[in-house]
Design a protein around this nucleic acid. Sequence first.
DNA 1: CCAACCTTGACACGATCGTGTTAAGCTTTG
DNA 2: CAAAGCTTAACACGATCGTGTCAAGGTTGG
Lengths: 127, 127
Amino acid sequence: MEGLTINEAAETTGWSPRMLRYIESAGLIEPPRTPKGYRIFGPGELQRLRTLRELLARFDCALSDVAFAKRHASDPELRAALDRWFEERPEPPEGVESGDWLSWEQQKHQRLLAMDTPPRLTEPTPA
Amino acid sequence: MEGLTINEAAETTGWSPRMLRYIESAGLIEPPRTPKGYRIFGPGELQRLRTLRELLARFDCALSDVAFAKRHASDPELRAALDRWFEERPEPPEGVESGDWLSWEQQKHQRLLAMDTPPRLTEPTPA
DNA sequence: CCAACCTTGACACGATCGTGTTAAGCTTTG
DNA sequence: CAAAGCTTAACACGATCGTGTCAAGGTTGG
């Protein structure tokens, strides 16, 4: 037998066997199986599982977040759409028809500052 | 008034006013405010909101996913950690017999991570 | 001034996530 | 063979998400 069974893997990784199955169902791991269907966890998988634990704790994020990040990493369309959305910023419309948006400049100013300024509470000094 | 109020924005974007506030609380938009605190939605924000709707529908993902993607996009450490995790290969010990599967090129993988001490390993003492 | 609108806060509620537990049925092994 | 271990499926349950709604109070505008 070349690898750990699910209960052994659980002990060395800190996950419960239930969670190991759950993590697999979430698509985050895919341990190989014996001909009869028993999962076998190699050292690489074990390491990945420990790393995953550290990841979730360090960044305080959820399994579903990592699952989505995986999707994000492997689906170029999804990534492109998201990137586009994040870049999209509230700007004045190219062809402003009627003069409805008179004081837009100020809004834009506020928006841009709010957007990529790290948590700052003081009033920014305009150059 | 140079922009739409929350109810007007709701009508043109398809979101409910409640959801517009929720989306803001999730950090996905940050509409500017009047001096008295009323949100004002410019055309850019409205467009973003419609795009967001399309995004969620097209890729069948959740607001929290997009929120996490934003974090992922703006936190290099998080991105690096996730990228490293996805690159980590499980590589089951294929050619190894029952003897020494514990010793193989694991160290290379371990080097990639800032190490913590994983939960101590104890041999499964049959209780 | 008063109706209409905005704001925050809270309660509610179904859906999903994360997790444990248990059941029924194979498999491995002493 | 029987105990122990694995597998899937299912029930349960608290926590969080997504969403509506309602309340209490400030703002706006005719």
